[in-house]
Structures are given as C-alpha cells and as structure tokens.
Design a protein around this nucleic acid. Structure first.
Lengths: 186, 186
DNA sequence: AATTTCATGTAACCAGTTACATGATTCA
DNA sequence: TGAATCATGTAACTGGTTACATGAAATT
C-alpha cells in the first residue's frame, strides 16, 4: 500500500484547501499569496512538486476543466484516501512537543477541523493546547528568572516574550472553548 | 573577498553563542538541547556543517584545548570578521516583512544585542517592532472579520490568534522600551 | 502592439533531518 | 566489564528557495 512517508505541512495545507474547494495549482498559489495561509509558503517550486507528490500517492485527483480548451486548468479534488489522510491528521490530539515546537501546525490543524472533528474532540484539542501552553509558559518563566541580568536584560526579555506568547495562546484556546460550548447545537 | 552568501539563522545563532562564550561544537549542541534557543535546531548534521562553513568563511577560528591530549576539544571563537558580521546583522533595523514573517529571527537578533547595539538603536528597533506588529494585527483583524462564519468559526478564530499574538508582541516591545528608558545610564 | 495576467512547470542549489559511525573516557 | 557519555563527524534523503521557461489569453 505504499510507503507511509509523513506528509509535509505544505502538503497538508494543500489537502485542506482543496477539501474546502477543489481548485487548480494556480488558485492555490493565489491563496498563499493573498491570505495568511501564505506563511506555509506558496513558491511554485514547492507547490507544484507537492501537488505531484499528493497525486502520486493517490490523495488528490485531477480533472481537466475544458471550458477554455486551449488553456486547460487542472482542477484538483480530494480522493477518499486524501480525505482520510487529512481527517487522520486533523483529529490527532496535540502533544506537548507540538504545542511547544509546532504551534503553527496545530493552528492549521484547528483551522481545517470543520466537518472533520466533533465538537467534543475540538474542545479536547483546545483544552490540551491551553494546558500545555500554560505549562510551557511556566517553564519559560523559570528560565527567564534564571538568566535575569540587569546589565544585559535582553536574553531574559526575549524569553519573557515567549512566556507572554504561550500565555496568549492559552487564553485564546480557553476563549475558543467557550465559543464552542456556548453555541447550542443547531 | 568571497561570495557574500546570506548567513542562515542557525549560523547566526552559533555566532551569537560563540561570542558570548567561546566553546566547542559539543557545548553548543548541549545549549540547543537544554535551552529555548533549541528552536533553531541543534542536530549534529546541521551544527557541524554550519560550524565548518563559518570557519571556511573566516568568521570563527578554532583553537585546540589540549588539557586532555587524547581527547582534543575544538574551541571556537569569533574572528574580527565574525564579530563584524554578527554586529552588522544585529544592528539591522527590522523591516515590515521580518516583523510579519520572521519574528523569531528578530527575537534572536534582539537577544544578541548586548555590547553590539546602542541603547538608542535598541529602542528604535523595539519601536519599529511594536508599530509594525500592531499594524499587522490590524490587518489580520480585518481578515478575521471578512471570513467570519458562525457555522465554522475555526478559520476566523485561527486568524484571531494571530491578531492576539502580534498585539502581545507589540505590548512586550513597549514594555521593553520602558525598561531601557527607565534605567538611567550607570 | 505591447504588457499584464493566466497557468504550469523545471533546474540548480542549499540546508536541515535522521540515522549511523567512531573511538576515547568515565561511571556503575 | 559493560554502559553511558564525551566529542566529532558523515551519508542519504528530502523538501524548500530562487530563478527561469513557456505560451496562451485578456487588457490597455
């Protein structure tokens, strides 16, 4: 059934975007260029090879849009295997290491949850994110205290920004939880 | 005078650490493994080649510590050219794109400022960081509003975390400015 | 007619990842 | 004596970056 290589962040971003709306490589690149998802880079030398890899692995399929027969557009959509791979990733619960070292990946995962993750699962996800973020913030706060130096406060200050950043994430996650819990099911 | 290739973040981190304390590749790797600077990755396959590149470019020099003659340690220190390269980078003022897309690099730059950047320059640096962070937060806030969707609030919420993160950075920068300004010169 | 935009790619390069290799030394 | 740690590295792989290439269609 093919080597189970890990999908890159870019590949996962592409899967998620294609799931929201089947589209061409060009469309995808435009999204990277014009929206905050562009952090995950949309250079042509990255996007097109990534799309090829996804197609080779059978996670996406292309159908040619022939409305302009001389300028064919390859429109990609998810295959069932692609949908499954995306869902598997999206529904993974965050680990401590991901919270600490890969927060952007977690945010991407969260953004792609609609339709793939139950409300309960989403809330659990956010809860772990909040708790582990606070925990790491506390760790960083200890480090900041250890390296405090009145003459050269830069290092300690830099770590303090880390503290604030993780606390901000924790606060955000708790607000998001409220948002999901206060909404009664429709 | 040698091609002026751009230094990687890892190379700059190594320069900064070596400047603080001349040390061996192993020592450096230990710091990556045990302190928050580890974000910039300290895998052997990255660190040793990076050190070799820095040596080739004449930015660091090695002297052998022969206290244990059978187990020599190569201790690296900055050359004048290395100090100059580090100082050039550290004293660069942040650009909008760096604030938005490379905040970690800016933080590293800030952390290595002691002894390389005047107080005035440091404050200017933080001021730009604060202003551009707030500006981008406002941009993101507009995006969040545009994509607001009661049924699937995930995307909008994810962008909101971006808003909060950049605001946090701006707030932190302003506090840091106060810190530098309230300290009378000693 | 000329420029911009649509649309898809390739090529060269580069640095990082994981995993492995080597051998001395200190510790249990 | 055997295991962990000190200390430095290499090799294979991978995916991203920049820059370039191509040509049709829409716009000015």
């Amino acid at each position: 059934m093919g080597r189970r290589r890990r999908l890159t962040l870019l590949e996962l971003a592409l899967l998620g975007l294609i799931r929201l709306q089947p589209q061409s490589g060009y469309d995808l690149r435009k999204q990277f260029a014009t929206t905050p998802i562009g952090r995950f880079s949309g250079s042509p030398g990255a996007v097109y090879p990534a799309l090829k890899r996804l197609r080779t692995r059978g996670l996406i399929a292309a159908s040619v849009d022939a409305t302009h027969p001389l300028r064919p557009r390859e429109v990609f959509r998810l295959t069932p295997a692609g949908e499954a791979a995306l869902a598997e990733w999206v529904t993974r619960q965050p680990t401590r290491d991901e919270v600490v070292y890969a927060p952007e990946e977690l945010l991407l995962r969260f953004a792609f949850m609609p339709g793939l993750s139950s409300r309960k699962h989403t809330v659990d996800f956010l809860q772990i994110l909040a708790d582990e973020s606070d925990r790491y913030a506390a760790e960083l706060a200890r480090v900041a205290d250890e390296i405090a130096d009145d003459r050269a406060p830069h290092g300690s200050l830099a770590v303090r920004l880390g503290v604030e950043s993780y606390r901000t994430r924790a606060r955000w996650a708790r607000q998001a939880i409220n948002r999901f819990q206060s909404r009664s099911r429709t």
